[in-house]
Computed example of a mutant assay.
Amino acid sequence: MVQQTTSTVLMVRPANFGFNPETASNNFYQKKDSRPAKEINDLARVEFDAFVKVLQEKGITVLVVDDSEEPIKTDSVFPNNWFSTHEDGRLLLYPMYSANRRLERRKEILEYLINTGYLVNEIVDLTFFEKDNQFLEGTGSLVLDRVNKLAYACRSERTHEVPLTYFGRLMGYKLVDFDALQAVGDQTMPIYHTNVMMHVGSELSIVCLDSIPLASEKLKVQEFLEKTGKRMVPITSKQKFNFAGNMLELKNKEGRKFTVMSATAFASLNKVQLQAIQRYTEIIVPEIPTIEKIGGGSVRCMLAEIFLPLV
Rank of each mutant, 00 (worst) to 15 (best):
A50Y: 06
A215C: 00
C208Y: 03
R106L: 14
Q187P: 05
N100I: 15
M197Y: 02
Y29G: 06
T85K: 07
K107S: 10
M197E: 00
V162P: 00
A276V: 06
T194E: 01
T281M: 03
P286N: 09
Q56R: 11
S216I: 14
E161T: 08
K107Q: 13
G18C: 13
P190W: 04
T5N: 11
Y280D: 15
M247F: 00
S76G: 08
L308N: 02
T281I: 02
L91I: 06
P213M: 01
S76T: 05
L63N: 02
P36E: 05
A183H: 13
H193W: 11
K238G: 08
F178V: 06
Y173Q: 08
L136V: 10
V62A: 12
V272S: 11
G138A: 13
S262P: 00
F28V: 13
K32H: 09
E104N: 08
K293Q: 10
T194R: 02
N81A: 01
R279F: 07
T259N: 01
R146T: 04
K271I: 07
C301I: 05
F48S: 05
R102H: 06
V46N: 09
V9F: 00
E282H: 14
D132F: 08
Q56N: 08
N133M: 13
F19S: 01
E108F: 10
S298F: 03
V54C: 14
I114H: 11
T281C: 05
